[in-house]
Design a protein around this nucleic acid. Structure first.
Lengths: 203, 203, 203, 203
DNA sequence: GATGAATGAGGATTCATTCAT
DNA sequence: AATGAATGAATCCTCATTCAT
């Protein structure tokens, strides 16, 4: 009888180890041997679970996205009030930063850069960033429209405002990554929600 | 009699060519031969003007920043009204996107990713993104404070709001890079200035 | 109570499976895992029966040779007439091609190539192709000499003619492997025996 | 001005060096560094002239075939008598063995093995052995038919006899490669031409 | 006995950089 | 000053073999 191994568990162990290294060194500068060392396995073992370095990268991205979607869904599915829903959506981001995913966030830029580069390629395109933005935009647009309908939000270009709000969280993250001591991410979100959002409220 | 060459001019020609290739392929995937071909010179000639690939990258970043600073300064140095000043600052970004620098913007993510990676290294650190954010934040904070002082803006956490506003332009750019047809960048800035900023105005 | 296994039977099962894969992919391109899959056993199990990949190869070659020798012997041991004996020898080759060993034949070239490469090495040299040719040549030379003695064959350089006849069957096989539809191997041997051999007959 | 190099000449230098190594070690066992050392250049330089190891192999094969075709053509284009033409064709092989290509011949088996393996693949198939046999067969068939027409050769299955004759030279070569001292290749061809061919002559 | 998960030595290939011309 | 031929360090990936279960 050969050794029995939880393939799925080991796979995600490797992904996690890889993500940490990616975050530290960047995707291009990370060697397979770095990942192997971080995961405390042999170089060749990685190839039992992944086709190549890109494959690991993509799995990492996907697992990050799943985590994120689950989180959003959990936060907002019960809320009906548009204002509260909007707040909940932005607070769901905080969960990421406050959880122990902060290291993972560091590699987001590499994901972004790679995704943008892949944007015109028909091939695999596992990292379909455009689709992700689209999905997220639609969620926010729906909330904004509902708010406008019931007279809680001012009339506005919902598509643009949604894009700007999403942009704000992304851009905030960038600055936070740069210097985590400088930006109090919790306070930043409070400020976003309490002070900036007020621009879209009626009156 | 040796050929007389405008060293500086040729240097910036090479940087410009390199930036285009970086934008298309990303820094790591760009070969020196790609740059040489794009600049219509020999591979070896690049080394007459730059120490190595990183050197080109850094010069590219710096020239981008200079362009940007010049632009902002030109836009706002004469304006005194805080609201107008704020608008002018954001409109100055548009100049980038509307000018023929749009291709160059594509490489920004690589700059960001690399800058973030270098953030802890004492060494070279030509790309001091933190410093750049700092500078930009201070400009905006000054405007916000002046606006609050004269009663045009609501009291607020100026540091955070400044960070959020900067973040919004960065994040917007990300989405615009992804799909330039989807996002009307001009309209987006109009929306930012007219609809979102109103959240900070008094009444 | 340990499982009782017919070691020898399993060993030859593995060899047979391996030969099929060798024939398809060539020795160098065949992975141990390919052999394991073909033999429907685990990769590690192979090593219970063979030292390494080379070992399998050599066993395959040897079993092929045994088959061949048995076949020749069975065909000719009763015949005394030189002409008939010669015909019988060549017909014995047909048995190979007409049997279900045709797949195995495909790997002969790899054996040849490897054997030739080993020809100068003192080491292992399990595949002693030179010896095999020598043996075969001697059988044919004996027949030719007997034929000459009793006046059925013309006087000739028996060594050379034997070598040429052996070469003809080898070379024929090469062409047949290339395109089995093009060459009717049965007709080819008939032609060899009836038309070409006549060159050595008296009259 | 960069160094001026005769690219074509260097390319064939590399091929020649590679062929020698292939002959000694076999294609699969030859490392790129072996070729580099043999050609007295750096490992990377090889890739300035060839795409990969296979590419070198194929160029080697092609140059061998060109040499061979040139040789045959030179030998026979003026001869009209079928018997003499046939002899000339076989003597043209001798030129190879007597020239300094004997080392190159050693790698033929690798070509064959590889060609046979590629026989079903649609892809590149630079080494189209089937086509080569076809061409050669047609040349011989034409000679045989002409000989029969003018009553110099017996009626026969020209396709099969041609295949057998080609096979004989191939098979002879195999044995000669095995032990060059044992087989006097010159005498072998004389014997082929004088003794075996006589089987097809009228009377 | 059987297995396949784990391994790391080995080798093909890439590409920044050097340097002779 | 300009060039591109030459290079080899660096790195991805393969796969025969080992060994714990």
């Amino acid at each position: 009888m050969p050794k029995v191994v939880d393939k799925a568990a080991k796979k995600s162990e490797i992904v996690n180890a890889a993500m940490k290294v990616f975050a530290q060194k960047g995707f291009a500068n990370t060697k397979m041997s770095d990942i192997a060392r971080a995961a405390k396995i042999g170089k060749g073992t990685i190839y039992e679970y992944f086709h190549n370095k890109n494959d690991i990268f993509e799995h990492g991205f996907l697992s990050l996205m799943e985590l994120w979607e689950t989180n959003i869904a959990k936060r907002i599915f019960r809320i009906t009030d548009p204002e509260e829903k909007l707040k909940a959506i932005f607070y769901s981001f905080l969960d990421f930063f406050e959880g122990d995913h902060s290291e993972i966030i560091d590699v987001m830029l590499d994901f972004w850069a790679e995704a943008i580069r892949q944007k015109d390629e028909q091939r695999l395109r596992v990292i379909n960033l455009e689709k992700i933005y689209q999905d997220f935009r639609e969620i926010i647009i729906a909330v904004l429209k509902e708010g406008i309908r019931i007279g809680r939000f001012k009339p506005m270009n919902t598509f643009m405002v949604a894009s700007l709000l999403i942009g704000m969280t992304d851009g905030l993250m960038l600055q936070w990554i740069m210097n985590k001591d400088l930006i109090d991410i919790k306070e930043a979100y409070r400020c976003l929600i309490e002070e900036v959002l007020s621009g879209i409220y009626m009156k």
